[in-house]
Design a protein around this nucleic acid. Structure first.
Lengths: 212, 212
DNA sequence: CGATTGTTTGATGAAAGTCAAGTACCGTGG
DNA sequence: CCACGGTACTTGACTTTCATCAAACAATCG
């Protein structure tokens, strides 16, 4: 679904940009359009009263921030820009009318909504039953897959703008510990990170780490 | 949505029962009807290659096993009966036709699907950033809320069939540790569990534990 | 009523957290 | 172009939370 709107917008309304580390939306505030991210990464974030935070997921370019915004007019979590974010806002009523006329588009909306749920379920499994190493390895592989789907992986190398705090808050770890894991990955020649670009040096060994 | 189908079924197909601890569905196997649980609790479960398991959620009576089965014809996780489960199977095509005619029902389907996603997000936050005590307390309060919605809570007391292993596998803990937490809850006169019935003795103190 | 399944308790250990201090990096303005 | 402030990364010493393992006991269920 999203590619359609990310590129040639039939019912586009207007674009907006948000700088890195700035909020895109605040939890609870009304969202009167349906946003699709065109450029940059965003994080869906929950802040807890004790100051900790949990990242519920990331949106990569070409995706809805969340498919539920087609139906719902507010979000229960904050959305923050990881990199500078450019997103397009679609008129909700117009979008829903378009959907009503196109069963094909509905299928695709349903599909991205199911995919969202599946990513959430995978994250639950990670947080509940996998150790830090596996969580980090899986995050990397998942990011690679999602980027590959948009043809943004060349030579096992792709843009990876997440800070170690993002990884930590997404995986229920601390930045200090994520650092240790990444350092050990580098020493083992599994990956390399330079200039916000991540290169997977040994894909099969990384996949092996992830199974089990 | 579900209450409609759990009670007076316009397009009911047939009922099935499954004994406690038995599988309801296997991951990947085709599901050619849309199941709604009428009696009993079920768990959605993922088994990992290392023998651990993670429970992704529970269905209480009157709910879809998962709303995504209205669209999708298979599940990516096992479903297991916690108690004996009685569920009704609806014809997917007929159900979708009914939906096409009733925007009201669609709204309700969307709502339960969003609720499912919200529960998943809450669980992510629990597993990522809350400690065992809070996780257990929140599970109890959530169960109470869901049962209350079906008028199954009397005097802060309700049917609670989960074994400690279920709680552990749902919250990313071990049964031994869940036992310690529950024991401490009982000693603190927060709750009582007897005969598969859970009574909340001090709701406000339990809520206090959960915030923060 | 025996067998399976679930609960309780304790001793021990490991994974990951906390805290702290130092270094590197980066964008902005003088 | 350099200095500066903020952000990000790295490392190490120490602590906490929870896991692991084991064994005994209790409850349930054919």
């Amino acid at each position: 679904l999203e590619p359609v709107f990310a590129k040639g917008p039939p019912i586009m309304q207007f674009e907006k940009t948000v700088g890195a580390r700035r909020p895109v939306f605040r939890a609870g505030e009304p969202v009167d359009h349906v946003p699709v991210v065109c450029e940059g990464w965003a994080a869906i974030v929950e802040y807890l009263p004790n100051g900790r935070r949990q990242i519920l997921g990331f949106t990569v370019p070409g995706e809805f921030i969340t498919a539920s915004l087609v139906f719902s007019t507010s979000l229960s979590h904050d959305v923050e820009a990881v990199t500078p974010v450019l997103y397009r806002n679609f008129d909700r009523a117009a979008l829903r009318e378009t959907l009503a006329k196109s069963p094909d588009l509905v299928e695709r909306l349903v599909a991205s909504s199911i995919a969202e749920k599946e990513r959430a379920d995978e994250l639950i499994i990670d947080l509940g039953r996998r150790r830090a190493e596996q969580r980090v390895a899986r995050l990397i592989l998942q990011a690679m897959e999602r980027m590959a789907r948009n043809n943004q992986v060349v030579d096992n190398s792709f843009n990876f703008p997440l800070r170690q705090t993002h990884i930590a808050d997404a995986l229920g770890l601390t930045a200090a510990y994520v650092n240790q894991v990444l350092t050990s990955f580098r020493q083992d020649r599994l990956i390399n990170i330079e200039n916000r670009a991540l290169t997977v040096l040994d894909l099969s060994r990384l996949r092996l780490l992830v199974e089990q």
